[in-house]
Amino acid sequence: MTPLSTRLLANMRRGRVYTSANLTRIHRVEADAVAHALAELVGKGVLRECLNSRKLPGYCLAGSNPAPAQSQAVSGEVATPAVTRRLDGVLRGYETELATRRALAMLARR
């Protein structure tokens, strides 16, 4: 392993997803070097590709995510993330948010 790969692994925590841009900023190295080190670690099976909370591609330690939780009885309430409403600026992710809420509503109807 390269020294950068070792340095990346030393600072990574289980259950957390890191993007290459995140790691580039944290370690103050060039993006190409981080991409090469991440590809090496994925190839060795130390890291795996996964999605972060914004559904962006990222990297996490292999075996760090727990198994999916068992489904429980529906209580009539559906937890959704808080939405910050801003009236200025560009709408981003509007269609995705609608589709997510539609899917949750249909799931709750069952």
Score class of each variant (00 low, 15 high):
Arg16Val: 13
Leu51Trp: 06
Ala37Lys: 01
Ser53Gly: 15
Cys50Asn: 07
Ser53Phe: 13
Leu23Pro: 00
Tyr59Phe: 10
Val46Cys: 04
Ala31Ser: 09
Asn52His: 07
Ala10Ser: 15
Ala33Asp: 09
Arg7Gly: 02
Leu38Ile: 05
Leu41Phe: 03
Ala35Asn: 08
Leu23Gly: 01
Cys60Arg: 04
Tyr59Gln: 00
Leu41Asp: 01
Met12Glu: 03
Met12Gln: 05
Ala35Glu: 06
Ala37Asp: 08
Ser20Thr: 03
Ala10Gln: 15
Ala39His: 02
Glu49Val: 03
Asn52Ala: 01
Lys55Ser: 09
Asn52Val: 05
Tyr18Gly: 01
Arg16Ser: 15
Leu23Trp: 01
Pro57Gly: 07
Asn22Asp: 13
Gly45Ile: 04
Glu49Leu: 02
Ser20Cys: 04
Ala35Gln: 08
Leu9Pro: 02
Arg14Lys: 13
Cys50Gln: 11
Pro57His: 13
Arg7Asp: 09
Met12Asn: 10
His27Pro: 00
Gly43Ile: 06
Gly15Lys: 07
Ala33Pro: 01
Thr24His: 06
Thr19Met: 10
Val34Ser: 01
Ala10Asn: 05
Leu38Tyr: 12
His27Leu: 11
Cys60Asp: 12
Glu49Lys: 03
Ala31Gly: 11
Arg54Tyr: 08
Val17Asn: 03
Asp32Met: 07
Leu9Gln: 01
Val17Ala: 03
Pro57Asp: 08
Ala10Met: 11
Arg14His: 13
Ala21Leu: 09
Ser53Asn: 15
Thr19Leu: 07
Asn11Leu: 15
Leu9Gly: 12
Leu41Gly: 00
Ala35Ser: 14
Ala21His: 13
His36Val: 02
Val42Gly: 00
Arg25Cys: 11
Ala33Lys: 14
His27Ile: 03
Arg14Ala: 14
Tyr18Lys: 00
His27Phe: 06
Glu40Val: 03
Cys60Phe: 03
Asp32Cys: 12
Gly15Ile: 00
Ala37Ser: 04
Val29His: 07
